[in-house]
Nucleic acid binder design. Structure first.
Length: 861
DNA sequence: CGGATCGAC
DNA sequence: CTATGTCGATCCG
């Protein structure tokens, strides 16, 4: 991070932020940058950073070319449209909550200093020679910061003490802090170990009626913990900080005079009473944290999370800051605030915006029209929220986890053998974690970073969820094999490997799965599966079949060849060891399973009842069968979709139900938007030779695989897909990620509600409403699902559909796009909240009160 | 769906 | 010598 900002332009983000105030030793910006540069220059890392930087520059150039094409006309129109939105946003502004952001100061470093007095007054950092997690403020004067490798930090500050990470300790401290926080907001939201958001709105109300005693807290003079050393430390600290004499707690910039805690010591000398204002509450929290942990925290108080977070940054360390719940206070706060301070605006976004002359939040607001033309909808709306100071006003619990991963960095590994065993190890670790949470996912992603720091990910989605080491490895191994092959005969030289599992079943799906599929799979795996060749044990079966796969398809052979390859590369000892412990743990297990099912496929599928038309099909060619089903489904689906759209008397046509629906409805009231950006096509086609200059190793992608599965093209299609995914058609063959087909296992007749072998009276569980449906045909069941889905989706659309004029349109590809979460994280609910407010009723409300217009124009005056 | 990128801690 | 690990979101093809 540091090097980048230092070598590009004068705007130094973090390096050099720290002062050389006290005239203490330390380094000025230039010195710091010079040292970093020397340590960095010529390294592979640096080369890669340069490359990435150039990519960003290209993005910027693209954006600037796009900007050139924008006419005054377009800009004016955009201005009108955006300002309409601004009015709505302004009206939706909610200042009624009190959000607090608590941020422990230099957390890890502070903990280490607390526990080892030797380190006090020394520059220290926590981490390793390769990477630092944080540094204390002393070290920061030398430019030593988080995310900097230790060896460079050492060059900046030769006396730097680097303490290894000790997460257990930090976790314990964090827990202590959380116990305090929970008293103020039981639903508070921790963000990592050292940060949290609280909504203290309710607490404030209750607190008004609290007697003093409930707001009284005691200095922790006699140590309660770690008696051995703490007594001395503490008193020393108090003296040093001026705490012991007078309980003026915080020498931060916040004015203490008004609401200052009344310290008329009643009975107890060593106590302090806090007031009832938000500031007092936060002081109390910080006081208690410090008494409890001997660590200081900074805090921000504001009407929403984004502001609170930026606020807590203002007076750190050991300070707090509040933005009053008034629009003007918010605006004032933002006025000169550099956008980089905003959560969600990182290095890249900052640079792009800077290219447009935008550095502060007020500039961000001034350029709103331009931004709406240059960036994706999500991005510019986010920008607008930022510049208006809007953020989420309540704390959402984080939803379910979406992925789980593990990755490791190491010194170069280039032998395939080592790479496979490493991969297996990662899979093992990951599987263990997955099972702790009882998760199974359908997508496995392999991540590689080569010795030139180029990162590449390769993913594969399989039909049934995976969670065990063997299952994950079976997929990851193939991905790895492909990558190894792609650079052969050169070795794959990597410095990092990671494995991720995602695509977890939702709760809904889990329930469904349990009802039907689990039992089905079980019976399949344990009985149905073996029934194929009843006389043989698994092991016999596998060993037999691993050798000859008679009549294997082309894909089978290819796969077998690769497997053979990887078997050779896989150290046999590790496989053997596993087997020793667990028979099922053979590296080959999954692979063999696949082969067997492949075999099953080729043997069993000579006659086949199409689950859609219920006609018998006979074919040896899976592809042909699939084609038939596709056509069949298409027929049905298209018809269903037509029916639905006819019945729907709104103006929406089926297009509106596309997952990424293109909102073409033009509201009469709004400016017509005929002339979209002129240079659109040129821009789109101006796509270039980007990334063509990198080494041969990482630029080669896996050759495109044919996309057999239809893309969902409308809602019914999605419904069908849902059904398919959920195994409603146990007999359907679908494509595995590789170039071969794999069939889901058969269900026994009557053993599962999924069976479509009989036309009569099947009972199915709708994956949407989760209710059982009696049905005579798949078509009618599908119709039910469609209706169900429609209900849900229509509801969603009416909630989400907003600002027809703003959601302009089809050509997102022209936008420069690409901002990420951040806001989501800092303002988790703003999006949904806003959509909620912009339903038709609120729109009409807005229309009435257009007199707020002038307030907008006054903005930032 | 897969791959790359961004951003946060 | 020596430049993290984990997660979610977004965009594009």
């Amino acid at each position: 991070m540091s090097w980048n900002s230092s070598c590009n332009d004068g705007v130094l983000l973090r390096v050099g932020i720290s002062d050389n105030k006290a005239g203490m030793e330390g380094l000025d910006k230039e010195k710091i940058n010079k040292i970093i540069m020397e340590a960095t220059k010529g390294s592979r890392f640096y080369e890669n950073e340069l490359k990435k930087d150039q990519q960003v520059n290209q993005r910027i150039e693209k954006m600037m070319r796009l900007k050139e094409k924008i006419t005054t006309q377009q800009l004016l129109k955009a201005q009108l449209q955006v300002d309409k939105l601004v009015i709505e946003l302004e009206q939706s502004r909610n200042l009624s909550n009190t959000i607090v952001h608590i941020d422990m100061d230099a957390f890890y470093a502070a903990v280490e200093m607390r526990d080892n007095p030797e380190l006090k007054e020394k520059p220290i950092a926590v981490g390793s020679m390769s990477m630092l997690s944080t540094s204390n403020y002393h070290a920061r004067r030398f430019g030593v910061r988080a995310a900097m490798p230790g060896f460079i930090a050492k060059k900046l500050c030769p006396h730097l003490t680097i303490v290894p990470l000790n997460f257990e300790k930090y976790g314990k401290v964090s827990k202590e802090v959380r116990e305090i926080l929970t008293e103020y907001d039981p639903n508070f939201m921790p963000m990592g170990l050292d940060e949290a958001y609280l909504n203290i709105t309710e607490h404030l109300e209750e607190r008004l009626n609290w007697p003093e005693d409930k707001r009284r807290f005691f200095f922790n003079t006699e140590s309660t913990r770690e008696k051995d050393k703490d007594d001395i430390n503490m008193s020393a600290k108090f003296n040093e900080d001026g705490y012991s004499s007078s309980p003026v707690l915080f020498e931060d910039n916040t004015p203490l005079m008004d609401n200052r805690p009344e310290q008329r010591d009643q009975s107890v000398e060593n106590s302090i009473v806090f007031g009832t204002s938000a500031e007092e509450v936060v002081k109390e929290i910080r006081f208690r944290i410090e008494q409890q942990t001997q660590l200081t925290a900074s805090a921000g108080i504001a009407p929403n999370t984004m502001l609170a977070k930026m606020c807590s940054d203002r007076n750190k360390p050991n300070g707090q800051c509040r933005i009053a719940p008034e629009r003007q206070a918010v605006i004032d706060f933002l006025k000169d605030l550099p956008i980089r301070k905003v959560p969600g605006i990182g290095k890249v976004t900052e640079k792009m915006l800077k290219a447009l002359g935008i550095v502060t939040c007020s500039e961000l607001y001034q350029q709103r029209a331009l931004l709406s033309l240059l960036f994706s909808e999500a991005s510019w709306r986010n920008f607008l929220d930022i510049s208006l100071g809007l953020g989420s006003t309540h704390l959402e619990k984080d939803g379910e986890r979406k992925s789980m991963s593990t990755e490791r960095t190491f010194s170069e590994i280039n032998s395939a053998e080592d790479q496979y065993s490493l991969c297996r190890e990662l899979c093992r670790d990951l599987a263990q974690e997955l099972q702790k949470e009882g998760l199974k996912g359908k997508t496995v992603t392999l991540k590689l970073k080569n010795v030139n720091f180029e990162v590449k990910t390769r993913a594969s989605t399989v039909l049934s969820s995976v969670s065990t080491e063997e299952e994950i490895f079976a997929v990851a191994k193939d991905l790895l094999g492909t990558e190894i092959d792609s650079v052969a005969p050169h070795p794959l030289r990597i410095r990092l490997m990671g494995v991720r599992v995602s695509g977890f079943l939702s709760e809904e799906e889990k329930r469904y799965q349990q009802k039907s599929i689990k039992s089905f799979l079980k019976s399949g795996k344990e009985t149905g599966f073996l029934r194929l060749q009843p006389g043989k044990s698994n092991r016999e079966y596998f060993t037999k079949n691993s050798e000859a796969s008679p009549r294997g398809s082309f894909f089978d052979k290819k796969r077998a060849a690769r497997q053979l390859n990887s078997e050779n590369l896989c150290p046999n000892e590790s496989v053997g060891k596993q087997l020793f412990h667990d028979q099922k743990s053979s590296a080959n297990f999954v692979e063999e399973t696949k082969k067997v099912t492949d075999l099953q496929n080729s043997n069993l599928c000579k006659t086949f009842t199409c689950p859609v038309c219920f006609e018998k099909q006979s074919s040896n060619d899976l592809e042909e069968l699939n084609r038939h089903i596709d056509e069949c489904l298409n027929g049905t689906v298209v018809k269903d979709a037509m029916d639905i759209s006819k019945n729907d008397n709104s103006r929406e046509n089926t297009l509106n139900f596309l997952p990424h629906f293109k909102n073409e409805n033009v509201d009469e009231r709004q400016i017509n938007k005929t002339d979209q950006l002129a240079g659109t096509d040129q821009f789109a086609s101006a796509s270039d030779n980007s990334a063509s200059n990198s080494t041969e190793k990482f630029t080669q992608l896996i050759p495109d695989k044919p996309h057999r599965e239809r893309q969902p093209s409308n809602l019914s299609d999605i419904a069908i897909n849902v059904c398919m995914k959920q195994c409603l058609f146990p007999k359907r063959f679908s494509q595995d990620k590789g170039d071969h087909f794999e069939k889901t296992e058969h269900t026994e007749k009557n053993s599962s509600s999924c069976s479509f072998d009989t036309k009569e009276d099947s009972i199915l569980v709708c994956p949407v409403c989760n209710l059982q449906q009696k049905t005579t045909s798949l078509v009618s069941f599908n119709r039910h699902v469609d209706v169900c889905l429609n209900k849900g989706l229509i509801q969603e659309l009416t909630e989400k559909k907003d600002f027809p004029a703003m959601t302009s349109n089809t050509e997102n590809s022209n936008r420069v796009g690409g901002l990420s979460r951040g806001q989501q994280c800092a303002n988790p609910s703003q999006g949904t909240k806003r959509s909620g407010l912009t339903t038709s009723q609120s729109v009409s409300k807005k229309a009435k009160s257009c007199n707020s217009k002038h307030t907008i124009e006054m903005f930032f005056k």
